[in-house]
Write a protein that binds this DNA or RNA. Structure first.
Length: 572
RNA sequence: UGGGGUGUCGCCAAGUGGUAAGGCGCCUGGUUCUGGUCCAGGUAUUCCGAGGUUCGAAUCCUUGCACCCCAGCCA
């Protein structure tokens, strides 16, 4: 794990409890975990939870027991060559590192194919596995249902010699895909469907991104995973809830191989609830559909909960780690509120993002009593009083400025303390101005607002009256034009419709992306570096887009809005 | 109707027989040249329901109920 690794959370959860007991009982002297993604897609925030857990555990116990050799492996679970690709491996590694973790060893399940094959022959020899030649459909029929027992395959009592011969010929490529499979001989009537003579190997005449054409038979997850764990000396194999039924098989594989294989550890599997977030989609299938159906711009579309998307959106790794720590690790299925995630990024950026002035939807203000050609360079702090950082820049002030459309109202409610006819507001870091006249077009749209300023109010409160509101502004003459992309929640529904089809596409929030052009940024933002984050005062946190922002032609993404108690109260 | 799991505040989540942590959200008030931040206070007489054991139960027992997972040659 690298230096940017998370401060160890004080976290305690059922997994840490189990580990502590194991250590205390001296069942283990160290903790070895692994993060085992299948390289067939991009990582998302749900994976981040698993990453933080597995890598976090190794980090914590290395702190606690420095000599223990506790570690976390990155292992690609590459047992299905038809879906997997090196491209995904690269993306996954980038994401894990970006999150702040470094693996203690990079492995592939395919590293162990030869061993797995050897063990399979052993199992056959021990009468614990056999080659089955039932068709796909027959296999399904023989398996039974959740409420009725399955029945034995007619090939179940094949002799060891025959199975061994067939299995070797499977490897040799003598059969077509689907002609034979290797199965564990367990119990076709077992109440746990996973134990009804599960498949161990299938034939796939497909090149593998790591092993090339070396194999045409590939192990199944339930066989490959426990073996990979055991070979690597994993002590605690952590996965999600849907694998609870597989644990019995996991144990079967290890128990039946451990004496023969002399594994360095007897790993145990523990399951925790995967992360769900409202207002978005997390399943691989739906993410893939959004990307392939061009409903989003790619895996790194800022609307997506993918790590790549969140990175481009402007999320920090620290905020994602803090989020993962905040949701905890437990066994109850749950859906975390997006507000929790938003809190984490605001909380992080509040300390890190310099404040800056930017008008997104401009409306022009002319200050009548301000000299035509005068320009004042006003000093503005990058940080609010509560952030202990130093730094200022000069912002130019002149007769014509832009303010936000939302900061002016023709007929304001009583508790609106921004600009309105006859009302006075403070311009941030500058003067107080009073609205004198509103120029509208034929349709009644406000074209321009004419104000006067009070020269006595620079750095001083007006005398004899109090001005409650402060609004942001940008000098028209000095403004940097920019494109700003306003991002919001992917879905307009808390949860996508449950259907197996593409129904969830109808739930896409049409305002999840709103592209604004002609935005007016303060001059200092012209040279913003791609990836640089700012708070646009009173509006939210923004990042210069890594792909599209160019010096002189900035493009900003909104990471998250600021909390807005005014807007909230207005909604009621 | 089989098996494996889970049910504590709107959302997460501690708690493992001694009288309901914490975070998010929400509400109040204060501070404030960001209606941000920060600060102070409030927000479950109750732990899926019903019985029972006990001086005492979210925690033990009994019995219901709800939800999730398992019938890919995916992981």
């Amino acid at each position: 794990m690298n230096s940017s690794a998370p401060a160890p959370a004080k976290a305690s959860d059922f997994i840490r409890d189990i580990i502590n007991e194991d250590l205390q009982a001296e069942r283990h002297q160290k903790v070895i975990t692994r993060f085992p993604p299948e390289p067939n897609g991009f990582l998302h925030i749900g994976h981040a939870k698993s990453i933080c857990l597995n890598f976090g555990l190794a980090y914590e116990y290395r702190e606690k027991l420095p000599e223990s050799g506790s570690r976390c492996h990155l292992r690609f679970d590459d047992t299905d060559p038809v879906k997997e690709d090196t491209l995904f491996e690269d993306g996954i590694q980038e994401d894990v590192r970006w999150l702040g973790f470094e693996w203690d060893g990079l492995y592939h399940a395919s590293d162990y194919f030869e061993k797995m094959y050897e063990y399979a022959e052993y199992l056959i020899g021990a009468g614990k596995a056999y080659v089955c030649s039932l068709s796909d459909a027959e296999t399904k029929e023989y398996r039974g249902t959740v409420t009725t027992a399955g029945k034995n395959s007619p090939y179940r009592e094949r002799t060891v010699e025959e199975s061994l011969d067939l299995f070797r010929r499977m490897r040799a490529g003598e059969f077509k895909d689907g002609e034979h499979v290797l199965r564990a001989k367990i119990d076709m009537a077992n109440a746990n469907m996973k134990m009804r003579d599960p498949m161990l190997y299938r034939i796939r005449h497909t090149a593998h991104h790591m092993t090339g054409d070396k194999w045409c038979i590939y192990p199944m997850y339930d066989y490959a995973h426990p073996i990979s764990d055991a070979i690597e000396g994993i002590t605690h194999s952590i996965c999600t809830l849907e694998f609870e039924n597989n644990r019995e098989l996991y144990d079967w594989v290890i128990d039946n191989l451990i004496d023969y294989a002399k594994f360095p550890s007897r790993p145990h599997q523990y399951e925790f609830a995967r992360l769900n977030l409202n207002y978005t989609v997390m399943s691989k299938r739906r993410l893939l559909e959004l990307v392939e159906g061009k409903h989003v711009s790619g895996w790194d579309d800022p609307r997506l909960p993918t790590i790549a998307g969140m990175r481009r959106r402007g999320y920090t790794p620290e905020s994602i780690r803090a989020f993962c720590a905040s949701v905890g690790v437990a066994k109850a299925n749950s859906t975390v509120d997006m507000a929790q995630l938003e809190f984490c990024i605001r909380d992080d950026l509040n300390q890190k993002a310099p404040r800056v002035l930017a008008v997104l939807k401009p409306i022009k203000i002319v200050i009548e009593n301000y000299p035509d050609d005068k320009v004042e360079e006003l000093e503005a702090s990058y940080w609010p009083h509560d952030v202990p950082k130093e730094g200022t820049r000069l912002v130019p002030f002149s007769k014509e400025i832009y303010i936000e459309q939302d900061d002016f109202m023709l007929e304001p409610p009583k508790d609106y303390f921004r600009l309105a006819p006859g009302k006075e507001v403070r311009l941030r870091y500058a003067y107080c101005i009073t609205c004198k006249e509103v120029i509208q077009d034929a349709q009644g749209n406000v074209q321009e607002v004419r104000c006067t300023y009070d020269p006595e109010t620079l750095g001083a409160n007006p005398v004899g009256r109090k001005v409650k509101g402060t609004i942001h502004w940008v000098s028209a003459r000095h403004a940097q034009d920019a494109e700003v992309r306003l991002y919001d929640r992917l879905l307009s529904l808390e949860a996508p419709p449950a259907g197996k089809d593409s129904e969830f596409l109808n739930a896409i929030n049409p305002e999840a992306l709103q592209t604004l052009t002609g935005c007016k940024l303060e001059r200092s933002l012209a040279e913003a570096k791609p990836g640089e984050r700012f708070q646009f005062e009173r509006q939210g946190y923004f990042v210069a887009d890594v792909k599209d922002s160019k010096p002189g032609m900035p493009v900003f993404n909104r990471i998250v809005t600021l909390k807005d108690s005014w807007a909230r109260s207005q909604k009621k």
